[in-house]
């Protein structure tokens, strides 16, 4: 498992509002999972306004990361293990209710 700080990542949005980050995921990802605040992703408890959208594209994971001084970043990171874990949890998706 990798920590967010150690990921080989691309910052897709920076200084965004949380709503903007969610809308980006919903507009650009075909495979989306919704999680609640505190959900553990990349060894961090995710900060966010529920429902929190996480996008997947193959092994790529697109997720919001909020810092108090800098707002919300939308991060894209390639991580097969975390992508696989997310798919296995039976989380809510855009197409089906849990």
């Amino acid at each position: 498992m990798a920590c967010v700080e150690d990921l080989n990542k691309e910052i897709v949005l920076s200084g965004a509002s949380f709503k903007e980050a969610r809308e980006y995921v919903e507009a650009h990802c075909k495979e989306i999972y919704y999680v609640e605040p505190g959900f553990r992703l990349f060894e961090k408890h995710i900060i966010g306004i529920p429902p929190i959208a996480i996008g997947l594209d193959g092994d790529m994971v697109l997720f919001p990361f909020t810092k108090p001084c800098y707002g919300t970043f939308l991060i894209r990171a390639e991580h097969a293990e975390e992508a696989s874990r997310l798919r296995s949890l039976g989380l809510k998706t855009t197409k089906e209710k849990k």
Binding site: S17, F18, P37, I47, G48, T66, K67, P68, G71, T72
Partner: peptide, 14 residues
Amino acid sequence: NDAGITYAATVRYL
């Protein structure tokens, strides 16, 4: 700021 509201929403949920 928006980040503060995001943290507040998180604590509200938990």
